[in-house]
Amino acid sequence: MTKHEFMERLTNALKRNGIEDISEIIDEYEQHFAFKMADGFCEAEIAAKLGDPLQLAAQFCGDAPKKAPAGKRVGAIARLCFTGFWAGVFFILLAAWDAVLAACSFGSLAVAAGLLGKLGTWQAIVPMPYGVATVFSAAMVTLCVLMSVGCVYFTAFFRQLIRVYGRFHRNTLSAAAGGPVLPPLAASPNFPPKARRRLRRVALVALCAFAVLTIWAILLAMITSGCLEFWHAWGWFGYAA
């Protein structure tokens, strides 16, 4: 088969199959012939190695973008507006929770600094001996670490959720337009294994240290003040002793 015959058969078969942009396909095969001939092959060899034009033409079937009816698209957009509204509300709620975690983390650190630094305000609100205050402030530091880890993880989770929703959004529109649908994303954040192990270790250590230090601080406070309800004994939050 000569190049001319090959091209003619291919073009006719593509036309019969109703393929669009035939010239683009023909160009690729023209180039293929050009490269192979530059390497010293003859037309018949190249055509034989390319394969049967009819079979090749059949392989181009089924990749043409399907035109979706306009109604389907409008329906998809309406659905997305609805889900978008609720997802938006949900995301605001999640962002607020992230802010709460960050504030808790910062707050614990502020309490720890106040207790350790003998700041006047803290002395007035929760008066206690300095020895007890150091243990309490150490407990607060571990709480701050724990909250920070929570905050980091939650932020990553939140980001991933937004990406998941973005993918869903794209897929819905694409499906309505007859385009390809992509695989959905996993909802859990994907930290690199090393970072994930480190985060988990820090969180576990902080949790244990927080539990031990808090119990120790409370016991120490009870022993020092000489009664179970030490907050009454020391007149915390303005309670009279």
């Binding site: 690729e28 180039q31 293929h32 490269f35 390319l50 049967d52 090749l56 392989q59 181009f60 990749d63």
Partner: peptide, 28 residues
């Protein structure tokens, strides 16, 4: 296109022409 067709047909026994429909499908 030719580079892909050439390097694949060197390693795998396929008809040279089959790569082009695949490229078009992946593009669409």
């Amino acid at each position: 296109g030719y580079e892909i067709s050439d390097s694949l047909s060197k390693r795998i026994d396929i008809a040279d022409g089959t790569v082009y429909p695949i490229l078009r499908k992946l593009k669409s």
